[in-house]
Design a protein around this nucleic acid. Structure first.
Lengths: 336, 336
DNA sequence: GTGAAAGCGCTAACAC
DNA sequence: GTGTTAGCGCTTTCAC
């Protein structure tokens, strides 16, 4: 930088102003001279130094549970990462990736505990997309004052961006009812996952409010750790078909895709013998072999909100308790 | 840090030694006192400061052409990113993502030109996975002395890690010949892409060396910009089938998957009517609806090599001209 | 409009 | 074994 200043015949301060595009009323001629000197010397400001001096890093982190989920096309990891990257880049932020999955090595946790990089100012803040990380960890980090935002999950007062499942599953119910479906199987995860709880509630209340009996919806709770793989146990498929439903509504695309494959193996046609609907909008849902009707979670819009919130927290704004709900989009394809 | 030193009753130097795990023969008791003080004060060393002082960032970059490819399950982007992440983490490096795709905004290139972050020491080095970035850019960065390694591509003397296509397509030919296939269609991209050139050469020479006539291989060159989408033009399918081949060998999984769908739409059975083989090992290939036999590119092993090479370059080792070729693995599934 | 100078919070060479 | 000290390369306040 000193070299640039010397070559341009100005002080370091001036170079700094020009490089950082700071409005100090510098005449165009000075700016040009500095820029030319930069180009001639192939100068790029040292990022560590500017971070140290300015106390911000212009980088944010994305904490995801398991990086290998990126290679799983039945999960949304790739979509989430790409969306957050684009949101970050659009706001001039670098993106750094962290894994929250805990790993132990001779006793001590070597996993990248997501609070560390933001505490050490490696990133200014972090977006957390992880269904499994313990609530206390997140709460503790938030109470420490670290800029963190949850994606697709809600924990206490921690700022969050979630899909509007009420709206989504209500309109899904409307759409199915409009098209004459009257007997449903609702497949969801056992437990009290955010999505399953809200989806179930919304779907049932909309269907019954339209005058159909509550028993027209058969609930199947699946004991799946994470998202199911490419196949579904035969007895689960039996269970789904036991009340002879006209449509299978799943809270996850992965379940829907696995069910489609299981049904087809039995010679059933989709949607003639049974319609299938999923939720997420994973890449595989759009595959012509599946062509799954799904409630598409708008991770692109969610990422924009999440990054904005992080940046606002970095600036010191109070965002405690704020939660943005983004409407999912019903994508009707040939499976229902 | 000064607070920690005060609380532990030592100097900053000692704290630095302990925090960075430097062997200075410190007694256990001192280490413990320092660690306790760190814990009590919830201290994480400022990353910008240590990067500035130590002149290394302990972070590497991954430059990929198009981040949205991550959401495309017929491309390997997710696998590549996950593999490089794991390789980086295993070596104690942070991973930062960059997009090389050029974007213009009111005249000037706002894309993250991959040389900048390493020149500004934001990362120590960078792995480039991009089939499209101009050779001059890469060469220029390399000659500037920046630690860069190419993945899946070769440009002059720039260090690279590539799949061993000769080995892979030779063994693929062996496998098909062993199983009685004698008439092939080889589908590849027009032009002189690294993979296509090497695959074609290796496949043909192995097949003819086994005594079959050269005309038993019908070559179809596809004009596809990037990787093809989920469908294939009807006339292309016609062309592939025109010499009545027993097996279609594709240099990309995406082509193979699209061909399978096109063939099935015509009522053909796979592999009875025509066998199909791909190359890459994209997530969709393993889908039960496709179950594609493929030459699996070992991005996991390649990433290990690539990160190692970058780190060696960072340390100042001369690696000019070095290129690691990693053997692909033939995964035989039901499509061939 | 431009410059001088004081840090930012560490690391590492050198003393002791 | 532990401490002192001189930077690392910028940003930013305050003078001029």
């Amino acid at each position: 930088m000193a070299d640039v200043a010397r070559l341009a015949g100005v002080s370091q301060t001036t170079v700094s102003f020009v490089v950082n595009n700071i409005e100090a009323g510098l005449p165009e001629s000075t700016k040009r001279r500095v820029l030319e000197a930069c180009a001639k010397l192939n100068y790029s400001p040292n990022e560590a130094a500017r971070r140290l001096a300015s106390k911000i890093s212009r980088a944010i982190g994305l904490a995801i549970y398991d990086i290998m989920a990126l290679a799983n096309y039945r999960q949304s990891a790739g979509v989430v990462l790409a969306s957050v990257y684009q949101a970050a880049e659009a706001r001039g932020q670098r993106l750094q990736i962290y894994t929250t999955h805990e790993r132990k090595e001779n006793g001590t946790d070597v996993g990248t505990y997501f609070a560390v990089p933001v505490r050490s100012r490696e990133v200014d803040g972090i977006v957390i997309w992880d269904q499994y990380v313990a609530e206390e960890r997140v709460t503790a980090a938030f109470e420490e004052g670290l800029p963190i935002v949850l994606l697709d999950r809600r924990i206490g007062e921690v700022p969050a961006v979630v899909p509007d499942y009420e709206l989504g599953f209500s309109s899904l119910a409307d759409s199915l009812l409009d098209r004459g479906y009257e007997r449903f199987c609702l497949a969801l995860r056992r437990g009290s996952c955010y999505r399953d709880v809200h989806a179930k509630e919304a779907f049932i209340s909309r269907v019954t409010s339209k005058g159909l009996p509550a028993n027209c919806i058969d609930i199947v709770e699946l004991d799946i750790e994470a998202e199911v793989g490419p196949t579904l146990d035969s007895e689960i498929a039996d269970r789904m078909l036991s009340t002879n439903p006209q449509a299978l509504v799943c809270t996850y695309d992965t379940i829907a895709l696995a069910a489609m494959a299981a049904f087809r193996k039995r010679g059933m046609r989709i949607p003639q013998d049974i319609a299938v609907v999923g939720c997420a909008g994973v890449p595989a849902a759009a595959d012509p072999e599946y062509d799954l009707t799904t409630l598409h979670i708008r991770y692109d819009l969610m990422a924009d909100h999440a990054v904005d919130m992080v940046l606002r927290m970095v600036k010191g704004e109070r965002v405690s308790g704020s939660c943005v709900a983004v409407a999912p989009e019903l994508i009707v394809r040939s499976s229902a």
